[in-house]
Design a protein around this nucleic acid. Structure first.
Length: 287
DNA sequence: AAGAGGCCCTGATAGC
DNA sequence: TGCTATCAGGGCCTCT
């Protein structure tokens, strides 16, 4: 489900809710995620306070008051739900309010705080959670990842030197987290449309100005999507259950067969499988 | 060593 | 209605 903007939207809603709150109880209902939830998971969380709710790339990172970190990755289908004990359906046996947004199946983890709990749900189990001992290990954990588009390091020099001698297309690179972190299949297509660059373009022919455009449009698209609350396709919601709006701003994603939105362009949006992922573009205005 | 392709898993939807 | 096939926002592993 989530690329950087959706994860950031979830982070923001979580931040308000759980910063400075202490974990009272943890229930693991199903340990099977992409990485099996470790045996010591519950112990490493209970009675710890959340100091900070951070994010890197598509990962939510909770900093705890014993210097450790809890990493949450949502994979393709993961969601996080806030369940408030004091909603009107609160029942006397101390079970929590059953949110209409809370799925019936695949609720892997419940983390209880004083007056509410958050629930981690992931039907496809491509997501995972990890406890990281300290900051040293956290740095190591993300060492191989490329910069986010917002970081200073993601500049034309970085791109051009990364592309040197490579024979891969640009769409492929935008999805490569070792090159740039946080871009996924939706926003890769959108970024290349705004950059007027065809996704199949081999990177070794890209010029300084092409890189400049890709950098600027990457920042633009991701920021815009965060601003709009993410893209709510397949029912994406933030932790409070609100949907996002950015899907209305898609120029190409899932618009194959429709008219190009660029004013004056007569092109029809095409769909093509590139490195096993659906890719959308206008072959009229993207050169 | 780079790059292509397969695979992990469930659920929604399309087509017959 | 009910079957089967296809596709889905990610990332890692293996093979060539």
């Amino acid at each position: 489900m989530p690329e950087l903007p959706e994860v950031e939207v979830v982070r923001q809603s979580l931040e308000h809710i759980i910063t400075h709150k202490k974990v009272k109880k943890v229930i693991v209902r199903n340990r099977n995620l992409r990485l099996k939830i470790p045996k010591n998971f519950i112990k490493s969380l209970v009675n710890k306070k959340v100091i900070k709710v951070d994010r890197f790339s598509k990962y939510i990172i909770l900093q705890l008051n014993n210097k450790s970190f809890l990493i949450l990755h949502l994979g393709m289908s993961g969601t996080i739900h806030l369940i408030d004990k004091y909603k009107k359906n609160f029942s006397t046996n101390m079970s929590f309010y059953n949110s209409p947004n809370l799925p019936k199946k695949h609720n892997h983890i419940e983390i209880f705080f004083k007056n509410f709990k958050i629930v981690y749900n992931d039907p496809r189990r491509f997501g995972f959670v990890q406890i990281i001992k300290n900051f040293e290990y956290l740095k190591k954990r993300f060492a191989k990842y490329g910069p986010e588009p917002f970081q200073k390091k993601f500049d034309t020099n970085y791109m051009l030197s990364f592309f040197k001698g490579k024979k891969r297309n640009i769409k492929n690179f935008l999805l490569d987290q070792n090159f740039v972190s946080g871009i996924g299949n939706i926003y890769a297509s959108e970024i290349l449309f705004l950059s007027k660059i065809k996704p199949t373009t081999l990177v070794n022919i890209l010029k300084f100005n092409d890189c400049k455009k890709i950098i600027n449009k990457s920042k633009f698209v991701l920021l815009k999507a965060i601003e709009k609350g993410g893209s709510s396709i397949k029912n994406f919601k933030n932790a409070k259950g609100y949907t996002g709006n950015f899907q209305k701003n898609f120029n190409v994603y899932q618009r194959d067969g429709l008219k190009c939105k660029r004013s004056g362009c007569e092109g029809i949006i095409k769909k093509k499988i590139i490195s096993n992922r659906s890719t959308f573009f206008c072959d009229y205005c993207q050169k």
